[in-house]
Amino acid sequence: MPVKKFVKSGLKLHGVKVKRSDVPYIKGMLLAVKQMEKPLENFPDINEKTPLTTIDKGVFKHD
């Protein structure tokens, strides 16, 4: 599906009114995120990692 169509239908599905002038910017951000995703490929073990939870004191070493 073209990204612009995805933006419009996706926001509509969430019940958010789509402002046409926003669409190119949202599209740009979504494509930028896809670019940012690329370095994940350099870490083949990433799927072995448990996702960090919202409040995860286990990883915050202190005292």
Partner: peptide
């Protein structure tokens, strides 16, 4: 404002899978 709306819209359209992948990346 437009910039905040664009940021929030991008968040609404990102998937749960992407969010969890981000948290895996975060642990790494």
């Amino acid at each position: 404002p437009k910039d905040v709306r664009v940021l929030l819209s991008t968040g609404l359209l990102s998937s749960t899978a992407q969010y969890e992948k981000a948290q895996q990346a975060r642990r790494k």
